[in-house]
Design a protein around this nucleic acid. Sequence first.
DNA 1: CCGATATGCAACTAAACAGTTGCATGTCGC
DNA 2: GCGACATGCAACTGTTTAGTTGCATATCGG
Lengths: 113, 113
Amino acid sequence: MSPRSGAGLARAGPLFSALGDETRLGVVARLSAGGPQSIARLTAGSGVTRQSVTRHLSVLAGAGLVRGARRGRESIWELDPKRLDDASLWLEQISKRWDEALGRLKSFVEGDG
Amino acid sequence: MSPRSGAGLARAGPLFSALGDETRLGVVARLSAGGPQSIARLTAGSGVTRQSVTRHLSVLAGAGLVRGARRGRESIWELDPKRLDDASLWLEQISKRWDEALGRLKSFVEGDG
DNA sequence: CCGATATGCAACTAAACAGTTGCATGTCGC
DNA sequence: GCGACATGCAACTGTTTAGTTGCATATCGG
């Protein structure tokens, strides 16, 4: 149950990597605020071209963070909050382990070992 | 209180970007499991050179995730779990906003106005 | 059918970055 | 002082990637 293999968090790297881009964070924020929407609507106000947004959506989809489907001539994209929970869980695990490590260190220094 | 400006989360980008690298995630995991330790110890078993680890520590420090201090001839590094909490909080905000957006969409579709 | 809208695919450029090697500096133990 | 250990600094390379432009395809409304 290490943080890198437990609870469906085996691929935390690609997950954080997908979130580690300002433009992609903007897309995620826009999706979270406006609900499911098309690429054209996501592009408006993003400051980059439509193709750039498309590519970022593809990266986010690769990390399992978003999901899109063609509807007529539009492509509607939506968030997949499950992955966000996964990321949050990974962070909590690391934080917890750190506290435990500090506890062990304290015991050792105090002569418990 | 948008996710990009609220609660000390103004710079979520660099934060996730710092976490979005397998080698850095390894360093973070190793720190969290073993407590404060030197660069040499972090390097052992990392699969990369000491300079690479040093650089990654610098990046993590830039994001406020780790903190180091020279002690004798060694440089001891430790995790700063506060930033992990910040990241977790950001994720929760996004997730919450998404649920709200879906709620509004549902009301709209059902003819609430 | 036709114009407008919305997207997909492909090639190109420029910048960022991970990782390396080589050398210099400073500290510990004897 | 001397050898061993630990780190810092700098230059170089190869790869990845964000962003762009140009063109092709498919859908909607009349």
